[in-house]
Computed example of a mutant assay.
Amino acid sequence: MKSYKKIQANVDSSLALQAEGIFQDIGLNTTTAINVFLKKVVATGGIPFELKETPEQKASRELIQSISKIPHKEAKTKKE
């Protein structure tokens, strides 16, 4: 007999509603969709799709890296 483990996650409500609508359109409920995802993780030995940063995240990271390379001097007094 199978045993089940309850999994709870906090998800943005708007995102959840959008996803539920798509699941419904393809004949799934959220529980089934999550089970499909978990089975694919096990079958592939990892996340079954590529995870990449967005162009905005990349630009932000590159900006921070560039700024950190600018030479600077620590101020030791208020005047500095």
Rank of each mutant, 00 (worst) to 15 (best):
A16C: 09
Y4V: 11
D12T: 01
K40E: 11
N10K: 11
A59D: 13
L38F: 02
F49I: 07
P55I: 01
V11Q: 00
Q8K: 09
D12P: 02
E56V: 12
Q8Y: 05
I22G: 07
S68V: 05
N29T: 06
S60C: 11
S14P: 03
L63V: 12
F23S: 00
M1L: 07
F23V: 00
K52N: 13
H72G: 05
T44P: 00
T44A: 03
H72A: 10
P55E: 04
A33P: 00
T30K: 07
L63F: 14
S13F: 01
L51R: 15
H72R: 12
K69Q: 14
I47Q: 08
I47W: 08
A75D: 06
S14A: 14
L51V: 15
M1I: 04
R61I: 10
F49H: 08
A9K: 07
K5A: 15
D25P: 05
S3A: 12
K78G: 09
E20F: 00
T30F: 09
A19D: 01
S60G: 09
K6F: 15
D25C: 08
E74S: 13
L15F: 07
L51D: 02
N35Y: 06
T30A: 12
L38H: 09
L15Y: 00
S3I: 11
T30I: 12
Q18L: 11
K40T: 10
G27C: 03
K76A: 10
I34R: 07
I34L: 02
K6P: 02
I26R: 03
K73H: 04
M1H: 15
S60M: 15
Y4N: 07
E74A: 14
T31W: 01
N10A: 03
G21M: 03
E53T: 11
S68I: 02
E80H: 04
I47N: 14
F49E: 04
K52Y: 09
T54D: 04
K76V: 12
N10L: 05
A75E: 13
P55G: 01
I26Y: 03
G27N: 05
S68Q: 15
S14R: 04
A59M: 13
N10F: 01
Q8T: 14
A43D: 12
S13N: 10
K76H: 10
A16F: 01
K69V: 06
K58C: 10
V42C: 09
P71Q: 12
V41D: 02
H72C: 03
K73V: 11
D25G: 15
V41P: 07
V36S: 10
E50F: 03
Q57K: 07
S13K: 02
V36T: 12
K78N: 10
K69C: 04
T77D: 05
T30D: 02
E80D: 10
I22R: 11
D25M: 12
A33D: 03
K58F: 09
K76N: 09
T77P: 00
Q65H: 06
I47R: 15
A59R: 12
T32K: 13
S60I: 14
V42N: 06
R61V: 07
N10E: 02
A9H: 00
V36G: 02
L38P: 05
E56N: 08
Q57N: 05
L17Y: 04
K5T: 15
A33G: 02
A59W: 14
